[in-house]
Computed example of a mutant assay.
Amino acid sequence: MTEAGRVALVTGATRGIGFEIARGLAEHGMRVVIGARDPASGQKAAKALCDRGLDAHYVIIDVTDRASVQAAAAVLVDRFKRLDVLVNNAGISLDKHSLPSTADLDEMRRVYETNVFGVVAVIQSMLPLLRQSDRGRIVNMSTGLGSLALTRGPDGPMAFSRLLAYNSSKTALNAVTVQFANELAGTPIKINAANPGLCATELSGGKGQSPVAGAKVALSLALLDADGPTGGLFGEGGPVPW
């Protein structure tokens, strides 16, 4: 199935997994729009892809600022007239050294503003364009740390992680994914959450597999055929338990 002429927006795509997702979509023939808060970073990332002969652009978007999100949607309407793929990759983690009992509530609110409310704002603003696509795809970048089954102690393989804000924000993101999937059932739009695994990015402190490897599951969900799943959490090995 050809991807030529299709448009994809990837938020937080100036580096790491987001950049590799943007590169992968562009290599499949899509016109990729890199979402960035900083104009210089967005321009640099888009140029890096253009220098490889890929069709890349950038748009300024701060997912925590509703006016910025709506302005980005207006740019897509004006410049590209369509949107076929949305990858909500922008995310933050601030509570790397605290336990739930000592978590900073202000930091927790900041994490939720980006990882949960920001994603909802972007989806809501981009849905009118996505509804016009014959096969719209939404990918929310989640993590196994958001899985209650995997993090529940004492036997959960990820029970060691007690990052209250980050982990619970991704659990909430998984729930957001399900709710949108329920609303969009019966439409050409499919929405899923992706678990890229631990990747060597700024967020992880440079630990884990390469961002190229981490981008694979998001790319597969962004390129799903009409008979593909919706409303699930998936890793490279298949479905991940909630």
Rank of each mutant, 00 (worst) to 15 (best):
L9F: 13
M126L: 14
I21S: 10
V119I: 11
A175K: 02
R6T: 12
S204A: 15
A218E: 00
M30W: 03
S161R: 08
Q43W: 00
S101Y: 06
L49N: 04
L148T: 13
F19W: 10
G231R: 08
E107L: 14
P154I: 01
E3Q: 15
D78A: 15
L129Q: 06
S93C: 02
R135S: 14
V87D: 07
G91T: 07
V85G: 08
G136W: 01
P211F: 00
D65I: 13
E183K: 12
L203T: 03
D38E: 10
M158S: 14
V120W: 13
N192R: 09
T230E: 06
A71Q: 13
V139L: 10
V111W: 01
H28E: 15
A222H: 01
Y58Q: 12
D62V: 08
W242E: 01
A103S: 14
S210Q: 00
L233G: 01
A175S: 12
G197N: 13
S142I: 05
D225A: 15
V122F: 08
R37M: 02
V139E: 01
L83Q: 06
Q43K: 13
F160S: 14
A73I: 06
E27V: 02
D38Q: 09
E107Y: 00
D65F: 07
P154T: 02
A13K: 10
D55W: 01
G206T: 07
F19K: 11
V240I: 15
V85A: 05
I61C: 08
A193S: 15
A45I: 03
L148E: 00
V33E: 02
A67K: 14
V122C: 05
L163K: 04
K216R: 15
D95P: 10
I123A: 01
P154A: 12
I138N: 03
R109T: 14
G206I: 05
Q70S: 11
A72M: 09
P39L: 02
G156W: 05
G12N: 08
L105Y: 05
G29L: 02
L83G: 03
V33A: 07
E3T: 08
T14Y: 04
G53K: 07
G186P: 00
I60W: 00
G186M: 09
S68A: 10
G53Q: 03
N195H: 09
D55K: 12
R131D: 00
A74P: 03
L99R: 14
H57K: 08
V59E: 07
L105H: 08
L198M: 15
L163W: 13
E27F: 00
V75Y: 06
Q179L: 11
P188Q: 06
I61D: 02
